[in-house]
Computed example of a mutant assay.
Amino acid sequence: MTFLPGRRAALGKVLLHLLGGALLAAGAPTMAHAAYPDKPIRVIVGFPPGGPNDLIARMISNKLGENLGQAVVVENRPGANAEVAAAYVAKATPDGYTVLFGSSGALTISPNMKADLPYDPAKDFTPLIAVADNPMLLVVAATSPYKTTADIVNAARAKPGGLTYASAGTGSPTHLAGALFASMAGLNILHVPYKGGGPAMTDLIGGQVQMYFAGIPTALPLIHGGKLRPLAITGPASSPVAPGIPPVADTPGLKGYEASIWYGFLAPAGTPPEVVKIFDNAVSKVLADPKVQRQFANDGSQITDVRGEQFANMMRDEKAKWGAIVKQIGLAAKPGQ
C-alpha cells in the first residue's frame, strides 16, 4: 500500500500520540508514588482515646503530618483487643493512606489464642516501622490496702478468686502480663477485660477491680496526681522515670518475670516500596526530634526505629515468645476456636 505525503504525516502524528499516551500510562504508578502523600493519611488505633496506643499514636502523628506536608488523622476503632482495627486495615487499599498503629496484642498474642482471626499478621500487612517498646507498671488505686507486690500475692493466696485484675482486652499485653503473674505465683485471680486502657484505669481508680498492669504513659500522670499507687515494674530493672519502683521479679516466687509492649506502624500487604520508604523516613525523622525523644523518655518508653524485614522478624519472635506463655497458662487456640 502506498501512502501520500499528507497521509504519512497524519499517520505519524497519530502514532506519536498513541506512543506518548502509552508512555504516560506506564509512568503513571511511579508518578503517583512520587507524589505521595497528596491527601490526608488515616492512622487507625484499635483502642479508645486515653490509652497508651492512642497517646503514642497522636504524639507521633502530629509531627508526622508536618514532615509529610499532609494531615495525619488518628482514627479510633476499638474492639476485640484491637483485632477490629487490624482486620479493617488488612482489607484497606494498599496505597499508604490507611495505616495501622498496632502493638503486641492483636499482632503477636491474639494469633496464638484464636484460630479464626480475620487476618494473618505475617501475610496481610507490610511492617513499616516499630517505634517504641516499654514495660508496664503494676498499679492499684491510691486507696488500696496493698502497698507491695507481696501484699497482692498474700491476699490472693488467702482468698483464691477473691481478687480481680483489669486488662485492656482479652489477649492484650496487659492481660498476658496479669496471667503470667498469676501463673508464676500460683494464684487464682479473676481477669476482667475492658475495651482499652482508659476504661480499665477508670474502674481501677473507682475500686471496681483491684490491680492492673498499666502502660507507663497512662499510669504516670495518675500516679503523680495521687490517683494510683505503683507497686512494681514489669521490666528487668527499675526505670529512670519511675525510680524506686522495684521489678515484679524481685518478689519471692516471681523470679524471671518480665513483660513489655511494643508499638509500631503497619500498612496493608502490597503497599508500594516507594510509599513505605517515604512513610518510614518521615516517622524516623519524628523519632529523631529531641522534643519527641524527651517525651518518650518521660513516658518510660524506649525508642526502637526498627523497620521492614527486621520489624517482621521481631513480630515473628514475639509471637513465638507469647505463644509459649499462652500455652503455659492454657489459653492457646484450639481447632475450631
Score class of each variant (00 low, 15 high):
T149E: 15
E83N: 13
A320W: 06
D116V: 09
G235F: 02
T218A: 11
P243V: 08
E66N: 11
Y88G: 06
A179S: 03
L68N: 04
G300T: 02
A242L: 13
A87Y: 00
D317H: 01
G226T: 14
G253Q: 01
L16P: 05
G256V: 13
I278P: 01
D54Q: 11
M315G: 06
Q293A: 14
D317S: 01
A86G: 09
K159W: 07
G27Y: 08
G300M: 00
A332L: 05
P173F: 03
G256H: 11
A242E: 07
V131H: 05
A185F: 00
I152K: 01
Q295T: 15
A242Y: 10
L138W: 07
F311L: 14
T271C: 09
G162V: 11
L180C: 07
K147E: 15
Y212W: 11
E274P: 01
G96I: 13
K91I: 10
G69H: 15
I325M: 14
L138G: 09
P193C: 09
P193S: 13
P272L: 13
I325H: 08
L117Y: 11
P217Y: 06
E274D: 12
A267D: 03
P127K: 05
L16N: 09
I303Q: 02
P29M: 14
K327A: 15
V72K: 00
L19W: 09
A282N: 11
L128D: 01
A57F: 13
A182S: 15
H191E: 15
D317A: 04
A312L: 06
T148M: 07
N62T: 14
F265Y: 04
I278G: 04
V89T: 12
G323M: 10
A177C: 08
L176V: 11
I44R: 00
G178V: 05
P49V: 14
